[in-house]
Design a protein around this nucleic acid. Structure first.
Lengths: 229, 229
DNA sequence: TCAGTGAGTGGACGTATGTTCACTGATGAG
DNA sequence: CTCATCAGTGAACATACGTCCACTCACTGA
């Protein structure tokens, strides 16, 4: 289940005019091409588990049988995609940690940064948002694990920031889950919105900002004693 | 795009030992069988747009060509499914309206009623939650319309209940959208949880209750003036 | 009563799929 | 230099698919 470290951009087709490369590196090359091909097909509106093995290899510019040199079936490729997407999520959190919480207009800034991140990792978010509920059960549960882990990390980060000192760890996690679900759904909105429509983009951003603000407002007022009964 | 009024239960296969029926009624019968077949297949973990026409007719107990007497392709069947699911959502709202808002433990009671409703309309919620993001673009956008309409109705209901007199219509809608997104995702949780595990079911219910409570807490404290800038 | 309608049938078609197999030929280790 | 390795090839397979067609025959309406 190794994962490539190279950017998930879209050259996709394996280029044979390439300067001769070491064996392992060359193998990784077509493996990446297969993964990119799957992502590219999903970017054209297809859902993952409707993709065919031959279809993927065709887009990757490789013969169908080559597929088996890298994955035992399409599902296995899907699990690699889950792993990659998980890394992308983790990376987002890490960057946010490095940048620190903006003090002024914290939520709006965060929403803007999030939108930019989603757009520059469009394929991974498309995959996660799309297959999180609906796809094959094995992939769905793999994504659920990844997202759960993400929520845990975010909970830990928020605790160290001490933004909600009133919340117990369990309640803080509940808040994070709410935020993550909301923002993962927001990713669908963001990716569906055609670029250029500035007015609608602003309305969308406001909407997301308001939703997160409302959640944070509730979180600040939350008292765990209310729930003990 | 007519929709059957009969329950979406699962006899599914068209029974030819049936007492002879009037023509139109008999047609509706196999049409229902086709729709039920699609739902049944999705209930076995398949996503809608991976279903094949032949597969559906096979489960429905009918020859493939019969399909064309009812739908021009599987996508058209999908749109009927969206319409049906929309009716189910509307029905839920109507029942809630008739029952009125419970005064004590309002949120917990509502979450319990919601869970019961989801379980007794499992197939429709499975379809909506699964295809809302990820399936074919045309079905996804049809579902989005249906959900938007649902949010509008819920907004109107909440306004008449005057639970949040502080909220402008726009903010109230924003709150409803948040609740609907949260609870539609909750439907996935509910449907995925195997029955019998009482402890986990309780934990899940608590989690959903807390999330809605937190949203409502935020909504009560919301002041629109904060957002005008 | 009788003709026409139309839901459902069964066979055939071209094309697509996933998987198998023996193969080629450059790479990289000795 | 030599030779085994193995990523990628290309042909072949059984099977599945969507769609077309001519057909049946029970119901309907006049």
């Amino acid at each position: 289940m190794t994962v490539r470290s190279r950017p998930a951009s879209e050259p996709s087709v394996v280029e044979d005019d390439e300067a001769t490369l070491p064996r392992g590196q060359r193998k990784q090359r077509t493996r990446d091409a297969l993964i990119d091909a799957a992502l590219q097909l999903m970017n054209e509106g297809r859902s993952f588990n409707s993709l065919g093995l031959r279809e993927i290899t065709r887009v990757a510019g490789v013969v169908p049988t080559s597929f088996y040199r890298h994955f035992k079936d399409t599902n296995e490729l899907g699990l690699v995609l889950v792993e990659e997407s998980g890394l992308t999520l983790r990376r987002m959190l890490r960057e946010a940690r490095r940048a620190g919480a903006p003090m002024k207009d914290m939520i709006r800034r965060s929403v803007q940064v999030y939108k930019a991140f989603v757009l520059s990792n469009r394929l991974h978010f498309l995959f996660v948002a799309g297959e999180r509920s609906g796809g094959s059960p094995v992939i769905r549960s793999a994504i659920r694990n990844e997202v759960d882990q993400f929520i845990d990390e975010m909970t830990s980060d928020l605790r160290h920031l001490a933004i909600f000192p009133n919340l117990s760890p369990e309640s803080l996690r509940m808040v994070c889950e709410l935020v993550v679900n909301t923002m993962l759904h927001a990713a669908t909105d963001i990716l569906d919105l055609p670029p250029g429509d500035e007015a609608q983009a602003r309305a969308q951003e406001d909407n997301h900002v308001h939703q997160v603000r409302l959640i944070f407002l509730g979180a600040q007022l939350w008292r765990d004693e209310n729930e003990k009964g």
